[in-house]
């Protein structure tokens, strides 16, 4: 009996401690009834970043805000907005960070066009160098050179 009381006391102490703050569970997913619209929604989810996660899209993230964004996108699709309008709206709310496709503006020209420029530029350099080198072939080995070469390979075989 005393032991029970002791445990009970310990339990009381534990229960009067402040309960841990738990995040409310995310709103459940309600897919759209029209399969074409739902497919559009799914495609968009892959392009939208979950802003509180580490490089995940809202399609798979368990975070609350991801669920909210999914709901928002579905609402807007059902309301008849186009994909671009939805994306623009998200950018207005959260900034460029929310989309996985970086914007195309002066600050990102290097990003978008850099690789193609590099490939094209290097290609041009190579073509010019090839032209300049011309097609001069190395003249064939003279007889002396052939002898020296034969000596060299014979030496090598002897050494081995």
């Amino acid at each position: 009996m005393r032991r029970a009381a002791a445990l009970f006391a310990a339990a009381l102490l534990a229960s009067t401690a402040a309960p841990a703050l738990a995040e409310p569970p995310p709103a459940p997913d309600r897919p759209l009834t029209d399969p074409a619209q739902e497919a559009r929604a799914r495609a968009l989810f892959g392009d939208i970043r979950c802003v509180v996660c580490q490089h995940e899209s809202i399609a798979d993230s368990p975070a609350g805000i991801a669920a909210d964004l999914r709901g928002l996108v579905r609402e807007q699709i059902a309301a008849g907005k186009t994909d671009d309008e939805i994306k623009d709206d998200l950018i207005r709310r959260y900034g460029d960070y929310v989309l996985f496709q970086p914007p195309v503006r002066i600050g990102t020209w290097l990003l978008w066009f850099g690789p193609f420029a590099l490939a094209a530029g290097a290609g041009v350099v190579l073509v010019l160098r090839a032209r300049r080198r011309g097609t001069a072939e190395a003249p064939p080995l003279t007889a002396e050179e052939e002898c020296a070469l034969a000596e060299l390979t014979a030496d090598e075989e002897a050494e081995r």
């Binding site: 892959g46 392009d47 970043r49 490089h55 899209s57 900034g95 460029d96 960070y97 929310v98 989309l99 996985f100 496709q101 970086p102 914007p103 600050g107 990102t108 290097l110 990003l111 978008w112 850099g114 690789p115 590099l118």
Partner: peptide, 27 residues
């Protein structure tokens, strides 16, 4: 070079101009 740019660009841009962007599969 593409992969390098895509991976480092958000860092560089943020360092230089302070703007944050994301670079992911669409790029």
């Amino acid at each position: 070079a593409t992969v390098l740019l895509g991976t480092l660009y958000p860092l560089i841009l943020e360092g230089v101009t302070g703007a944050t962007i994301s670079v992911g599969p669409p790029y």
